[in-house]
Computed example of a mutant assay.
Amino acid sequence: MTGVFKRSLSFPNKIPSRAPSKPPISYHNRSISLPCRSHPLISQLKNEIDELKTWSSKLENRTSVWLCYGLNRLKDVQDSLDDILQLPQTQESLRLHPTWAEKILEDFLRFVDVYGIFQTLVLSVKDDQLAAQVAIRKKDDSKIALYIKSRKKMAREMDKLVSAVRCIARCQFPGLDSGLSVADAELVGVIIDVIEVSMLVSVALFNGISLSFASRKSSWIGLRLPKKAKKIKIDEGIQEFQEIGIESLWGLRKKGYEEVRMVLKRMRDLEDCICDIETSGQRVFRSLINTRVSLLNSLTR
């Protein structure tokens, strides 16, 4: 019996195809995290983040109203993140990536600490403002000197908060070098963006007060910088704070009634601005605490 053989064609020079390199984001891995289509809460959060990034790009005529607007929008961002962190899909993703949860908890703890210190400093500023107004009415130069000294000290304290906040943003988010699902990549992406805009708003707040309260000598240091750098340094101050310059507080005994009255009016206006900033800062502070507590509760269920 003759065997039947099938002929096959072979190409001796055929080069075997190479396996494609693994992409940083896996589109085929099964995931129980957020679906590929963005969750409405994530879409909302992205819009709020974009709005804050646009807000932070303003370099001129920064006022207390502008600053309070940014703080209130930051509270909205934190609240939206809190809602996302309470989704079952998000909680499962964080359980699968425990280093993410640790990073978020640590960052929010540091933000809470910073804003807690800020609230204490604001109370001190308000007390100094009241004492200064009494000193202005009495034209007490010795008390005015104490007020000016307290402003310089406050500027240094705000500088410390700026450094602390920038350190938070510089810390890298863990676990990004491995392949992630589309949903997980989107989740961690918005969390990173929230930390970034939290830093932007916080720096605008603390740095604005610091530059506005800095001594006259410090402002002269800026003249040694390039022209562009000098402009940015000045513009980052808060307009209402800068209207109470040190030069307007000296020599009150030589000033007339109308001049003293105008200084007092600006001091009262500044006091109102400080109260508004304090209120907005408290809202951010509480929102940060709520988000961290919600995350802790979700991870311990």
Results as ranks from 00 to 15, higher is better:
99 T>G: 09
238 I>Q: 02
178 S>L: 09
112 V>E: 03
29 N>P: 00
40 P>H: 09
243 E>Q: 14
15 I>Y: 03
283 R>L: 07
160 K>T: 01
55 W>M: 13
7 R>F: 10
28 H>Q: 06
154 M>K: 02
144 I>P: 07
140 D>L: 15
10 S>Y: 12
254 K>F: 12
16 P>H: 10
209 I>K: 05
75 K>S: 06
158 M>K: 09
32 I>W: 05
60 E>V: 15
60 E>L: 13
10 S>I: 14
62 R>Y: 01
37 R>G: 04
41 L>A: 12
219 S>R: 09
214 A>S: 12
198 S>A: 11
266 R>W: 08
27 Y>L: 15
166 R>K: 03
2 T>P: 12
178 S>M: 13
190 V>H: 02
238 I>R: 04
264 L>W: 12
145 A>V: 03
296 L>F: 01
206 F>C: 11
2 T>A: 13
278 E>C: 01
165 V>A: 10
243 E>G: 02
187 L>W: 07
147 Y>I: 09
137 R>K: 13
91 Q>P: 07
282 Q>R: 11
66 W>M: 13
178 S>W: 01
213 F>H: 14
45 L>H: 08
242 Q>F: 05
121 L>K: 10
246 I>N: 10
138 K>D: 11
45 L>Q: 09
35 P>A: 05
23 P>N: 01
86 Q>C: 14
274 I>W: 01
34 L>Q: 06
273 C>F: 06
71 L>T: 06
224 R>L: 15
54 T>R: 13
109 L>C: 08
89 Q>Y: 04
103 K>Y: 13
89 Q>E: 12
172 Q>E: 08
4 V>W: 10
55 W>G: 13
226 P>T: 11
6 K>Y: 10
23 P>G: 06
80 S>T: 07
176 L>G: 07
223 L>R: 13
286 R>D: 02
116 G>Y: 05
18 R>D: 07
166 R>A: 02
217 K>W: 08
17 S>V: 12
97 H>N: 14
233 K>M: 13
19 A>K: 14
119 Q>P: 00
54 T>L: 14
64 S>Y: 09
123 L>D: 14
223 L>C: 09
191 I>Q: 07
158 M>P: 03
125 V>F: 09
234 I>R: 12
94 L>N: 07
229 A>K: 13
26 S>N: 04
163 S>D: 06
129 Q>V: 06
281 G>T: 02
101 A>P: 01
133 Q>G: 10
267 M>L: 04
85 L>Q: 03
220 W>S: 15
135 A>L: 08
219 S>A: 03
263 V>P: 06
300 T>S: 05
148 I>T: 04
258 E>H: 02
42 I>D: 00
76 D>N: 12
49 I>E: 02
287 S>P: 04
208 G>A: 02
16 P>C: 03
45 L>N: 06
298 S>D: 06
19 A>F: 08
272 D>P: 01
23 P>E: 03
